[in-house]
């Protein structure tokens, strides 16, 4: 067992540890490049070609191609870099929340409002 492996398993939650950081490097590097508007344009023009330049794994590219948020996380994507990919798609964090929990966006937002009423 690696020394950096988290001792605690939290349901529905990934700790972005050394294992995920190594696994997701290519995918995260591509997403980091989207800080530049020029790179976002290049990705839009040719997704497959752009992804190839970063050496994405088959699993990573499939998750990108199918816009599969949980798949992107499982492939080592980190939410801070993935958020830049989501931005290209015009998705906000509530779209992502809905996609990951299997709720509609409206239901996801309503869940948060309800949590506020209980607070």
């Amino acid at each position: 067992m690696s020394a950096t492996k988290p001792a605690l398993q939290i349901p529905g939650t990934r700790i972005f540890d050394s294992e995920l950081a190594q696994k997701g490097y290519a995918l995260n590097k591509m997403c980091f490049s989207f800080n530049s508007a020029e790179n976002r344009e290049a990705f839009r023009a040719d997704e497959a070609g752009y992804a190839r330049k970063f050496g994405l794994t088959v699993e990573q590219y499939e998750a990108v191609r199918t816009r599969n948020v949980l798949g992107l996380l499982a492939a080592g994507g980190n939410v801070y870099y993935l958020a830049k990919f989501a931005g290209i798609l015009g998705l906000d964090v509530q779209d992502l929340g809905a996609a990951q929990t299997g709720m509609s966006k409206e239901d996801f937002k309503a869940m948060l409002v309800a949590a506020g009423k209980e607070a």
């Binding site: 529905g12 939650t13 990934r14 958020a83 992502l96 929340g97 990951q100 929990t101 949590a115 607070a119």
Partner: peptide
């Protein structure tokens, strides 16, 4: 923001 537990507060 991330994971099946997204939206947790």
């Amino acid at each position: 923001l991330d994971g099946e537990r997204a939206g947790f507060v």
